[in-house]
Amino acid sequence: MSKFFYLLKSGLKNLIHHRKIGIVLIITMVIIISLNLFLLLFYNNMKTAIKNLNKNIRIEVIFSKEVTTEEVNEVINFARKNKDVDIKEIIYNDAKENLKNFIESSETIKKIYPLIDENPLPPTLLIKVSSNYRTLKNIELFVRDLKNFKTEEILYPRDWFSNIFKISQWVELGTIGLIVIFLIVSYILWMNIFKVALFSVQKEIEIMEIVGGTKLYIRTPFLIETFIYTVISFLISYGIVNYVFVGISKVLDNLVFLNQDQIIFPLLISVLITVSGTERAITGFIKK
């Protein structure tokens, strides 16, 4: 135990001795970690926005004016029994109700309404469904089946949703790809900067070997030093991202911040990357 405390003390002292290169290491890591956290933030909000859109897919069924109540019920029953599409709500409006809604929609219409002899509007059915990229095809099939009933027209923004889903998929892939690239870059950067930093303490490593230090003994103070640099870098990065988020939240509503996992995992991955980078860098200085 006394060995560990001694090495811990050495690691902390190294922070002071290597402060110049330490600042370079921290700045590098702050840039990389902040970029990753911003990417995660962007990814979160993009996903939330798409989720909200997906919850509100509206299929509007316009019946012919002559449609009977039985025929409307047939469509409603078909929709309710359908298991391939997640139906959230079905709202039926008869012709009268549609006209009432139409009149109330604007003051001008209210004024010109008495000029209309007869109700020109048909009964309609509004089906609200929820979907994701995988079930989008089911909605298309559902809409095709609806056309077999006595309907005049079915309004459904198929292409629009399809594009949104495609974009969301690309965003997801792109974000993950960028994060992976950043992680690899940060590993290589850290390892090389630390290697440069170790040139100045090469003699120190040699002396530790001479007095009988094992590889683990030699590495430990440097790994402690690295761990502290990473935690400092992460806290600064978190502060930056949080500050920017608060700023943007004042302009844009309903933004979502990083969840607990998105804070803990990047921290753990950062530590893993820097510690393994340091380990790799030191290995080059220890004689085989």
């Binding site: 070997e209 009988g212 094992t214 590889k215």
Partner: peptide
């Protein structure tokens, strides 16, 4: 390396 380190001690 470890055995050599222990001998050096």
């Amino acid at each position: 390396h470890k055995k050599r380190a222990l001998l050096r001690q």
